[in-house]
Design a protein around this nucleic acid. Sequence first.
DNA 1: CCGTTCCCACCTAGGTGTAAATGT
DNA 2: ACATTTACACCTAGGTGGGAACGG
Lengths: 281, 281
Amino acid sequence: MPMTEKYCATNNLEPLVNQQVSHRLAYFAEMQQQLCVRNYGSSNIYDNGFTSLHSNSQHELRTESSHKSIEDNVTESRSVNQKLWPVKACLEMKCLWDEFNELGTEMIVTKAGRRAFPTFQIKLWGLDPDAHYILMMDFVPVDEKRYRYAFHSSSWVVAGKGDPCAPPRIHIHQDSPEKGSHWMKQAISFDKLKLTNNQLDNNGHIILNSMHRYQPRFHVIYDSATGEESKLVNFKTFTFIETQFIAVTAYQNHRITQLKIASNPFAKGFRDCDIDDWYVL
Amino acid sequence: MPMTEKYCATNNLEPLVNQQVSHRLAYFAEMQQQLCVRNYGSSNIYDNGFTSLHSNSQHELRTESSHKSIEDNVTESRSVNQKLWPVKACLEMKCLWDEFNELGTEMIVTKAGRRAFPTFQIKLWGLDPDAHYILMMDFVPVDEKRYRYAFHSSSWVVAGKGDPCAPPRIHIHQDSPEKGSHWMKQAISFDKLKLTNNQLDNNGHIILNSMHRYQPRFHVIYDSATGEESKLVNFKTFTFIETQFIAVTAYQNHRITQLKIASNPFAKGFRDCDIDDWYVL
DNA sequence: CCGTTCCCACCTAGGTGTAAATGT
DNA sequence: ACATTTACACCTAGGTGGGAACGG
């Protein structure tokens, strides 16, 4: 699998992770390696080294009725560590995500980095309270297409072939590594995560192409594997279809803007009515 | 030493430490025990279970000319772990602390908890980069006296016997435990630490008596001791005499108020002149 | 023309001392 | 009297979308 190896070999970890946890790189180096193999090892590889979810039947996205996510690991050839078998994840604020998703979620990307809204938050169950886990997120292009917003029809249309991707980055939750009991105590919020369109970003933010569609993913990594255990698959990936979005430098769909203003406390200054708890966040 | 044992026995750890790190209690239980013995084992014990620094020659405070602190461990009977021998601490913003100290530093205590200013910040050297350490602070009453401010003479005078102390608390730095390399990377700031006069405080803040004098202390704890090593003294305490202060509910010395306003960025609104970088913080 | 960048008014969240009110 | 509490104006620090300016 030469492409995969080449991809991993050129995948310099240092600038890929967010700054808050850079001093813990040793913990994550091997996990990064595993994720590379896992993400791209059995998928169609494009010139830019990236994967298309849609072109890979293993990853084909399907609508889920509940808060449940797609668990990617079921197709793994290696056995999954027992510490991860019972792990379940649930998306917080699912109703709000659904509302955005029905309109076509847009996320602002800026040179300096912009937080995503709604914030990515998950609740975990089934971790070993005393074992150590690392939590991380990454963002997979949904396709290799560039989009534009057709104002006359109020819809997104394909505008051509996708632009080349910067080397993909991962965001490691700042509490990592922590015990299972810590992660299960309350919802885990990725509110430090920022999105940027600056291909040369030096702040460890997630680099995305504007006008491209992305699927966020959550990874739970078992951090205490030793001996024979370390040969098992020591992570589990959760994909919530309703968190898909298109990266933009300015909002295109006015209804998205209005929903952001209505639901994001920091945008309260732009609300028309005084009912500021339309969404209780 | 019945008082010491009684003191430690009634010293329920749970509510003593700040909330941010409460889930890491297991790490600190033994250290707390050691600190109790160490702090109070060879000192005069008062009815309230507290120690007078002044009445104990081993702890007698003396002025230091440089940034150096008093290292308490030299009087220990047990051997100190090698991982701590070369550890040195240096007080950040020493000039500002000196300026406050010459006037007689006052720190506001409130029911809800108030940050100290200047912020307690130290720089560490000599840690093993790969070993894990815990950093904590506590506050020792300088004497068992109550003070009042004599406005006519602009000085603090003894107003009687000290009030009973609440069970002493420790503040564990939120990054604990972390590797030596982490702690030495930059100055360690205890900016999450808050002081309160609420004897029933439930937020893990440091409980102090208003109008009483306190000496802050820094403790570096070696967290990786196993086997024979664990019988050694696995912590080192640093005391910076210039950080001594009197707890107050309202500032008494007007010159302290003015110095706070001049040097604390959050008090900029009370400055007379527009030169807001009189102190570059 | 369309997408991006930049500055800005307006928020959230929380750290200041003040001065009046409230104990004790 | 003196100490403490409370509400508050005024900051820091940083997250919003708007709209003008910029650029291919």
